[in-house]
């Protein structure tokens, strides 16, 4: 579990991508995946303050590629046989149901890439760290914020029956399954961008003349790095 070189460590599962993964190749990098609705099994992670150092330890950050981080996901915790991701009952899970303050700490986007590479399409938590949430939204990994009680109910349901299927419906902005229907909030613009799978750089460059116009108004005393 400690090799960042892209060598699959023993015990890593070869996880097929869910059929609704539409990956459009942008050169060597997957473009942002569109997200409309996803149904899959869920794994309960009953921990709060899951920081990005745990999601992907710094040893893995030396890689200059954008893929292959799945083997490093939670690698320290996965070294413990009792860790929930090592439970074969959750081998198919594509939704992570975690405690509050998920994704705190380092800005490393590798945390999002690791979750996606492992096969996760959505993370449900009562609260996300800001940078993690932005990174996830930028890559099409859906961060779903639900009240703590609802998150607990989902965790309990998938602990009792790991085969329970949960649906994360971005179009309707609701999570369904395990006998509950829970609405979540996401602004219209972000929802549209995710459903279309649009990347921000392309969207921004449509306003290039505004950027140029702004640059003409910047005071001359602002520093230059050269």
């Amino acid at each position: 579990m400690r090799s960042p070189l892209g060598v699959e460590p023993a015990g890593a599962r070869d996880r097929d991508r869910h059929p609704d993964h539409d990956i459009v190749q942008r050169g060597a990098f997957p473009a942002m995946e569109a997200f409309t609705i996803h149904t899959g099994r869920a794994v309960p992670l009953r921990r709060s303050d899951v920081d990005t150092d745990q999601i992907i330890p710094s040893e893995w950050l030396k890689r200059i590629e954008r893929t292959g981080f799945g083997a490093g996901l939670f690698s320290e915790w996965r070294a413990d046989e009792g860790f929930v991701l090592n439970n074969p009952a959750y081998a198919e899970a594509s939704i992570l149901v975690a405690g509050p303050d998920f994704g705190t700490g380092s800005s490393r986007e590798h945390a999002v890439w690791a979750l996606q590479d492992y096969g996760f399409r959505a993370v449900i938590s009562p609260r996300f760290a800001d940078i993690f949430r932005g990174n996830a939204l930028g890559n099409g990994l859906l961060p779903v914020q639900l009240p703590a009680g609802t998150v607990e109910a989902l965790q309990t349901a998938v602990e009792q029956d790991p085969t329970v299927e949960i649906t994360v419906d971005l179009a309707a902005r609701e999570v369904r399954g395990a006998g509950l229907v829970a609405p979540f909030e996401l602004d219209d613009f972000t929802r549209w961008r995710l459903m279309e799978g649009l990347d921000d750089v392309g969207l921004t460059l449509r306003h290039e003349e505004l950027i140029t116009g702004f640059e003409a108004t910047r005071p001359g005393w602002l520093p230059s790095a050269v």
Partner: peptide, 17 residues
């Protein structure tokens, strides 16, 4: 602080949404 996709965005556009 920003993530790597945003680093790309700033490099390309000098802006950030």
């Amino acid at each position: 602080g920003i993530g790597t996709s945003q680093v790309e965005h700033v490099l390309a556009t000098q802006t950030l949404p």
